[in-house]
Write a protein that binds this DNA or RNA. Sequence first.
DNA 1: TGCCAGGTGATCG
DNA 2: CGATCACATGGC
Length: 273
Amino acid sequence: MKKVLENINSFEPSHIFDCGQCFRWVDIGDGVYEGVAKDRILKVYMENGKPVIDGCTEENFENIWRDYFDLDRDYAEIKERLGAGDPVVAKAIEYGSGIRILKQDLWETIVSFIISQNNNIPRIRGCVERLADGFGEPVGLDDSGVLRHSLPSVEKLALLEPCDLAEVRLGYRAPYLVKAAREVMERGMPYDYESVLALTGVGPKVASCISLFGLGDISAFPIDVWVRRLMDRLYGIPENDTKAMKAFAEEHFGDLGGIAQQYLFYYIRETSR
DNA sequence: TGCCAGGTGATCG
DNA sequence: CGATCACATGGC
């Protein structure tokens, strides 16, 4: 069955799924996005101006998807606060007005963003999909009859050797992934920025993404090449001055840094092509 | 062909 | 500490 969201603003599937926070949702035509999340296949699209969550029960909507799509957060109020007095952010918000920060599975964000380093988004998507197909568990058939899979569990990945992952074509990141899985087996799942940062293959940028998308810390402010570019061009902060950028984000965006970052990231990427 | 992509770890001083 | 370099892979 499908669930129509009656009183939700700030929800635009293309903004949500193409802003770089997730890698398993694809536009399968006519603005219909299909993805694998929470070990399920789901479709999301707009109908008569309203968001539709297609492929869930009422119970699963309340127990899983309400939280996943961050439906209880007041984005209108957040956008007002962030846009006030900052024309750059206001412009970015206008551009990505339907962005929502998905509350994704923690392990999935760890895997995805270790893969993301020094990589581009289309190729990250390919790597994540090959990893799921080759080593995850089947979750069902998608709209075109293809069998989809979840990402491999911590346990599964920890038992592999990097060379076992050759078909996934992760390059030098394969050993990072296996090592990180073994570290999680030993230490337990990380629970904050510092414990995430302690994993192999995770530096400040990836740890910020995991904090933001996997731990729900909307104050985390990931600084990648695109944000550096934007901060340089629009705020005059030199591209290599990470400290100044962190300070700027802290001062101007406060506890909403992560959400501001997503508007800015989406804006700079979409407009620089 | 060389440069770039949601960077990090190792190694130097 | 901070700077520099190698690291697979694929698109342009």
